[in-house]
């Protein structure tokens, strides 16, 4: 009699929680977050736009470079030197199917001449120990992508600050 009773208490005193459902939940969450983090591929451009207020009253030691982007995406350096061809947005769609269009698209996106000019300016500025000043003037009609291209060129030339101004006319 006594022996039987002892056995029963031993069985009752070992409670076990069923954790398999918990593990299921944790795994689901884990998979969700793994997928969510791998989807985050958005990057940023390392360009800062200095505040418009509080401008230095003294004349900058170096003439500022001026990039103007026209409505069709043609880019000019200091208003006279054309540094890029017009931007054809239709190539962006065609590039998925046509390799020739893809090549043309990446060629029109790269602004080698502009990068060259910017590097020159950067060198001049480093020689006299100052920061290069670049103004970017975008036509209201130009595509956002074109401005990003110019900023990518700036980043490539190691210039990380640009002033923005919007052109009123072409």
């Amino acid at each position: 009699m006594a022996r039987h009773k002892q056995l029963q208490t031993e069985e009752q005193g070992d409670p076990e929680m069923n954790i398999s459902s918990l593990i299921d939940c944790v795994f689901l969450l884990l998979i969700y977050f793994i997928v969510a983090t791998s989807l985050v591929s958005e990057k940023k451009l390392d360009i800062s736009i200095p505040a418009t207020e509080g401008q230095a009253s003294s004349k900058p030691p170096l003439d500022p470079g001026k990039i103007s982007v026209r409505g069709d995406g043609t880019t000019f350096w200091n208003n006279d030197l054309q540094v890029s061809e017009p931007y054809d947005a239709s190539l962006a769609d065609a590039k998925k199917t046509d390799p020739a269009a893809a090549a043309a698209y990446s060629a029109q996106r790269k602004m080698e001449q502009l990068v060259e000019q910017l590097k020159l300016l950067k060198d001049q500025a480093t020689a006299i120990d100052t920061n290069p000043v670049v103004m970017l003037e975008g036509s209201p009609r130009t595509a956002h992508q074109r401005i990003v291209d110019v900023m990518a060129a700036l980043a490539e030339a190691d210039i990380h600050s640009v002033g923005l101004s919007t052109a009123v006319e072409e």
């Binding site: 591929s41 451009l45 360009i47 800062s48 736009i49 982007v69 996106r109 900023m151 919007t166």
Partner: peptide
């Protein structure tokens, strides 16, 4: 990428009016 620059520039101007002068351009790596 196809938005006219005018809209982005206006958004930047609005931010400047609100006292936010730091702009970050979102892009995808090409």
């Amino acid at each position: 990428q196809n938005a006219p620059w005018e809209r982005s520039a206006t958004a930047i101007r609005c931010a400047a009016a609100a006292g936010v002068n730091n702009i970050v351009f979102g892009t995808l790596p090409s």
